[in-house]
Design a protein around this nucleic acid. Structure first.
Lengths: 209, 209
DNA sequence: TTATTAAGTGAACAGATGTTCACTTAATAA
DNA sequence: TTATTAAGTGAACATCTGTTCACTTAATAA
């Protein structure tokens, strides 16, 4: 998602300026600061280029309309804190599932190396459907929302208000949600069925004995 | 230099708000955003407190007069009282085990709720002997040293310079180290055998997908 | 050729933002 | 007691800042 597209000379210039400014100051530049550095008399040009860089996945706007809230996507985060807080939003039953969204039982501090995404959250597993993958009831799953789901990924699927952990396989017209339990059957659903929503990909697992 | 001085309740509050905002947003707050969060109707109070925090070395102003250019001073970017750092000391092979003590590959921040003991450390699992308990190769185990071992606890045993994960059962004269894998046999050893050392109890598990 | 896209100018608006000043209140130390 | 310090209100000022609009220019694709 980030960094595949080709950049024009101007776009590359702006991106480099942004990165250099970031490195030298420790905070991102404003639109005008970039325009000044380029010798522009107007901010509109740089502003448009920044939008393009966002669309191409090189920059991320952390907040809209606020100052200095652009950041390099996927790049280095130099002074960032090593640990961040994750919300525990509810429970996910792996057999006959159930989700209490945004319950926010408590927060949880976790090393940021495990959190690629700023919107990640925690879910507690209830059923046995992923037992063969070493996911047992009571485990906490680190879930990262996003569209970058690939075959074989372990995901959280929302099916008719109910959430389950399953392994994801895209099979032409349909999607197969595969439990990792020899005694359970996969769920098949049409890829456009509105009853299906993928909440995110499972990035980590926490268990407390 | 940085962080030695004592803080008043208000100063600590502001510093914590700053750090939390930073963690949640990825960029520092403005004076007004802090004031709003505190319910203040004026920005002057927070502004003064921020100046004090700078004078005491907790905050650094990266640039004067510019928006969002405060940052946590060096050494002050700690994750807060709720998280602590754990050393990753080596690998433990669950079949034919092997331990590299104090390798200290890296540190890892974890919620302190998971750390009853200050001497806890992390070990990486290598074998398959605990697969039926949902412990698979690559998992990180949170190990808490100590003598309070009970039957059925999952423990790290050091046998002839080699470490293994097993379930612990005290059977009169002998100790049974039970793998959780149907195809593997338990290890029996006399309770006074000097070849056996219990490194600690497994208190948690971390897995990264 | 024509149409499209990226790049840039110039201007402007609304709100965000750091900073300062005068004043009040409460707690604490001398 | 008096003096000092931290904390907070309320108001105001001057910039800073993101965003948008209309228009121009150059390069490129169809």
């Amino acid at each position: 998602m980030s960094g595949g597209e080709i950049l024009t000379a101007t776009q590359r210039r702006v991106l480099e300026l942004f990165a250099v400014y970031m490195q030298e100051h420790g905070f991102p530049p404003t639109v005008r600061e970039l325009a000044d550095e380029l010798g522009h008399s107007s901010t509109a040009g740089v502003h448009k280029t920044l939008k393009i860089l966002q669309a191409k996945g090189y920059l991320t706007q952390l907040s809209r309309g606020k100052s200095r809230t652009l950041s390099l996507a996927d790049g280095q985060r130099l002074p960032g804190p090593r640990a961040r807080s994750l919300p525990l939003v509810g429970q996910v039953q792996a057999g006959a599932p159930m989700l209490a969204v945004e319950e926010k039982e408590s927060d949880f501090y976790l090393d940021s190396e495990w959190l690629g995404d700023r919107n990640a959250f925690l879910l507690r597993v209830q059923g046995h459907s992923m037992i063969d993958a070493g996911i047992v009831p009571g485990d906490l799953l680190v879930v990262e929302p996003g569209q970058d789901i690939r075959n074989g990924d372990i995901i959280i699927a929302l099916l008719e208000e109910e959430a389950t952990v399953k392994r994801y396989y895209n099979e032409k017209e349909r999607i197969r949600l595969q439990p990792e339990n020899q005694s359970m059957q996969p769920i098949y659903i049409h890829r456009n069925d509105p009853a299906l929503r993928i909440l995110g990909k499972v990035r980590g697992l926490l268990r407390k004995f």
